[in-house]
């Protein structure tokens, strides 16, 4: 009996929240988020709707924020070298927020960290110049690349966040990396369950910044 009352209460609360949310959407201005990433964000090996950008979109919508539109501008295999030109392309869509989730391929290919920092820095500067809220997604590189390189790689994201005073997701693959049940057979790309966890991580930051 008590359970039944509680359930009814929750349903009513959800309905009430949804009505308010829809009303606020009707009144709210459209908000556009662009996720500029690599294969981890593009959803390599999973269906587009299973990739975390789509999951974040669904969760935003189900929480009543359907004025927020997410564009997944991620390309598998991409490095930070193309970040600026890609962002320029998406400026046409007038984004309000950009999430920079690049760098993993730079690290895996052993590219210069200094170069990576410069590339990401130029991209952040362009976004800030256009008054686009910028979020940086931090990345880590597997320990087999050596302590010196992995540490320098990780620190690069913290440095950028500090330098430009932008929010940082400390590690995009938090609670996912290295867990076989959450990754595909290649051990590096998240599977559908892995993307659910990344979606949670990214959503938290988005909600903080809205």
């Amino acid at each position: 009996m008590i359970h039944s009352r509680v359930n009814r209460f929750i349903l009513a609360a959800l309905f009430f929240t949804s009505v308010i949310a829809n009303a606020s959407h009707a009144a709210g201005k459209p908000y556009h988020i662009v996720i500029l990433g690599d294969s981890l964000s593009s959803g390599l090996g999973v269906e587009p709707e299973q990739a975390y950008p789509s999951l974040v979109q669904v969760r935003l919508k189900s929480s009543g924020r359907d004025h927020i539109k997410i564009t997944n501008a991620s390309i598998s295999g991409s490095t930070t070298a193309g970040a600026v030109s890609r962002l320029k392309w998406f400026l046409r869509a007038k984004p309000d927020m950009v999430i920079l989730a690049l760098g993993a391929n730079d690290g895996l290919r052993g590219l210069s960290i200094k170069e990576m920092e410069q590339n990401l820095g130029a991209c952040i500067e362009l976004a800030l110049d256009k008054q686009i809220k910028t979020v940086l997604a931090g990345m880590k590189i597997p320990p087999n690349y050596g302590q010196e390189y992995t540490r320098a790689f990780e620190t690069a994201f913290e440095n950028l966040s500090r330098t430009y005073d932008i929010p940082l997701i400390p590690f995009l693959l938090k609670d996912v990396a290295g867990k076989s049940g959450l990754n595909q057979a290649d051990g590096i790309h998240p599977n559908a369950d892995g993307h659910k966890i990344i979606a949670r991580t990214v959503l938290e930051t988005i909600l903080e910044q809205l």
Binding site: L108, K140, P142, P143, N144, G146, A177, G178, G187, I188
Partner: peptide, 9 residues
């Protein structure tokens, strides 16, 4: 010391 948890081998 490179082969540990998280290493991509």
């Amino acid at each position: 010391g490179l082969i540990r948890y998280g290493s991509r081998i």
